[in-house]
Design a protein around this nucleic acid. Sequence first.
DNA 1: TTCATTTTGTGATTTTTGTCACAGGCTGAT
DNA 2: ATCAGCCTGTGACAAAAATCACAAAATGAA
Lengths: 188, 188
Amino acid sequence: MTGILENRIKSMANLSAEAFGLLMNSMQPKPIGKGQYLLKEGQVCKAIYYVEKGYLRTFYTKDGKEINTRFSFENDFVTELKSLRSAIPSDYSIQTGEETVVWEFTKEKLLDLYGQSVEIESFGRNLLEQMLIDQEEHANLFKIYSPTERYQYVIRQFPHLLQRVSLSHLSSYLGIARETLSRIRKNP
Amino acid sequence: MTGILENRIKSMANLSAEAFGLLMNSMQPKPIGKGQYLLKEGQVCKAIYYVEKGYLRTFYTKDGKEINTRFSFENDFVTELKSLRSAIPSDYSIQTGEETVVWEFTKEKLLDLYGQSVEIESFGRNLLEQMLIDQEEHANLFKIYSPTERYQYVIRQFPHLLQRVSLSHLSSYLGIARETLSRIRKNP
DNA sequence: TTCATTTTGTGATTTTTGTCACAGGCTGAT
DNA sequence: ATCAGCCTGTGACAAAAATCACAAAATGAA
């Protein structure tokens, strides 16, 4: 089913039938087993991914511990932009957290499409804008809210995070020790 | 002097002489006194700003206290994207921290230019990419590092922050109490 | 079901950070 | 030079969170 992706794309840019076809015809859905990697630290990121089903976890390794920097669910786009943009090794890894289906937009193909169609480049710009807004909001969480407030913000805004991501994984994403998060969860 | 801005733009996109002229001819540098506002909470953000001289401070007000979410120095581009994109009231204010000179790219004019020139839209996309990378890096500071480590990171990567921004302003930017930051600063 | 593995809850304790209060410094205007 | 207003340093204390250790619970595979 391509329906969700189609709608997502159409909601972000007014693509003509031609441009839309150009974009969609160059891709296919790609199923990936749970725990598989889309990108490993040290590799160069080659694509932007759209999550149709399942979810992805982006993490950084520090002193042997994994620190989760992002979770990407259905209808989200993900990439490791710093690596993608400059073709440099990534500091982060991207792994599935469930059985997942993604659509892969390779950089090569995207740049080609940008050249062929102004509308697709406009779509790319719109996508980046939305990603940037989300990221800024997330960064400000840490400046504005305490750990407890961050947890409350997440259960209000992103309840699926709690249902699908383990508490251990969520804790590093919120910058809180696992035990502390477990205690926060008990007391409202 | 437009030299810095010219170089910045040229380093981000290969603009033809026509596109470049189109972009530059529609703007002028704008001097702003210290402490003046480019945007106040509740207003709709209308433009992207390029800082030629001085610096800007973006902040959020919580319980009567100002929490700084961003500092933008010479050669940086700044806006309040969520407000700009959707024409909704901003949750943030943007104020100068010194005598400042900015170049104003209004949304209206930019959209017009995007329509006129693919190269300028490409420049816009490149600018967003860079802003997103910076923002992600900043957000991950809070997940990966402790307050002390965040301070050390900042003095290594952005020493000018310490020289030009007051310790009180810097503390909320790093998510640390003013007193704690003062103590961190004493002990290396 | 059973067992091994992973995840979560909880207590005790230490460490870190925040809060409050106030003194000393610096700055800019008169 | 003087003074008001802001910024910074510092002590004492309170609060919050991290760490360590281990038990309980959940999960998944055989």
